[in-house]
């Protein structure tokens, strides 16, 4: 897993308040942003509309869904992509398979963004023991082997979407906090912040009115990239059996359950894996485009 690394270009510097419209214009001229944006829209659309799009119930074990020797079926008129080893419709399971993972990674990334911003900005703004505490805690959390640490935490709270979101955010806020802290430390000396402080602005007001607008692009870029990373982490956990639990259709789980049937029906492993990769690529590329568009503002 490569989640611990922040991209080398990810360290953004403090800048004047972003000019949103110009960034949008740049983004709309970027073909990579278009392609990844369409992919993300398709992913979200399919996940939301899965009950309408899927030809079958993804959990139904079809009586006629297995071959004579009890193996998965190749594509037929009734089952466009064939069935899995339990006689369930593969296409329906694929359409449903991104829902839970997407919900988990988007929620966890959003929670990480909020917590990371608050703690990072507080650390950067106040300095002193708050800074030491937050930085040390982030450092300590980053020192745990990611997958195993997540596994241990999931075992306490028992696997489920809620606990997976909590566990993932408990790890991922550190990346946002680090970036926000660095930027806030630079902003702290800026004239407008000093002026606000001398005129008696509260910490809350400083955070909300002065720091947030200036670090928002960093937080948004980080949010997008972290969706890609948490999506992969979630898939890995499901593969190891501590993520999404059966019979819920989930791409990571589908790869794990079908890997022994790879030789008979490669599609059972190839399709869900490719779906995970595609989703992760889409969010990475979009995050990268966002960063490029915002950097020049």
């Amino acid at each position: 897993m490569l989640q611990w690394r922040s991209s080398p270009a990810a360290t953004l510097h403090a800048r004047a308040p972003a000019q949103g419209s110009r960034a949008w214009a740049r983004l709309s001229r970027d073909p990579a942003a278009w392609i990844s944006g369409v992919l993300i829209a398709a992913l979200v659309g399919v996940s939301v509309l899965a009950p309408l799009l899927a030809p079958h119930n993804p959990d139904t074990l079809f009586q006629n869904g297995l071959s004579a020797i009890g193996g998965p079926l190749p594509p037929t008129a009734q089952f466009p992509l064939g069935t899995d080893q339990f006689g369930r419709d593969e296409l329906s399971r694929l359409l449903y398979g991104g829902r839970t993972a997407l919900l988990i990674s988007v929620s966890a990334s959003a929670a990480s963004a909020v917590v990371g911003f608050i703690l990072g900005a507080a650390a950067g703004l106040t300095g002193g023991w708050v800074d030491t505490l937050v930085s040390r805690l982030a450092n300590v959390l980053m020192s745990f082997p990611l997958t195993l640490f997540a596994v241990a935490m999931v075992m306490i709270v028992s696997p489920g979407p809620g606990s997976l979101i909590a566990v993932t955010s408990a790890i991922y806020w550190t990346y946002t906090a680090r970036l926000v802290r660095a930027e806030t430390m630079a902003l702290k000396e800026a004239e407008f912040v000093v002026a606000a402080r001398t005129s008696g602005a509260t910490w809350g007001r400083l955070l909300w009115r002065h720091i947030l607008p200036n670090v928002l692009d960093t937080v948004i870029v980080r949010f997008t990239l972290s969706i890609a990373q948490t999506f992969l982490l979630e898939a890995g956990l499901s593969y190891l059996g501590v993520g999404v639990q059966p019979p819920t259709p989930d791409w990571g789980l589908m790869v794990a359950q079908s890997q022994n049937f790879y030789a008979q029906d490669p599609g059972l492993v190839l399709y869900p894996g490719a779906a995970i990769a595609l989703a992760s690529i889409a969010f990475s590329v979009f995050g990268d485009s966002l960063r490029r568009a915002l950097r020049h503002s």
Binding site: M1, L2, A228, L232, A235, G236, Y239, G252, V255, A256, Q259, Y262, A263, P266, V269, L270, G273, I276, A277, S280, I281, S284, V285, D288
Partner: peptide
């Protein structure tokens, strides 16, 4: 490179095993 960091490791491993080994 963008694709390489986005591939799920377990899946890449299975695919490599299937083609190169099996």
């Amino acid at each position: 490179g963008m694709a390489a960091v986005s591939l799920p490791q377990f899946w890449l491993g299975i695919v490599l095993l299937f083609f190169l080994a099996f």
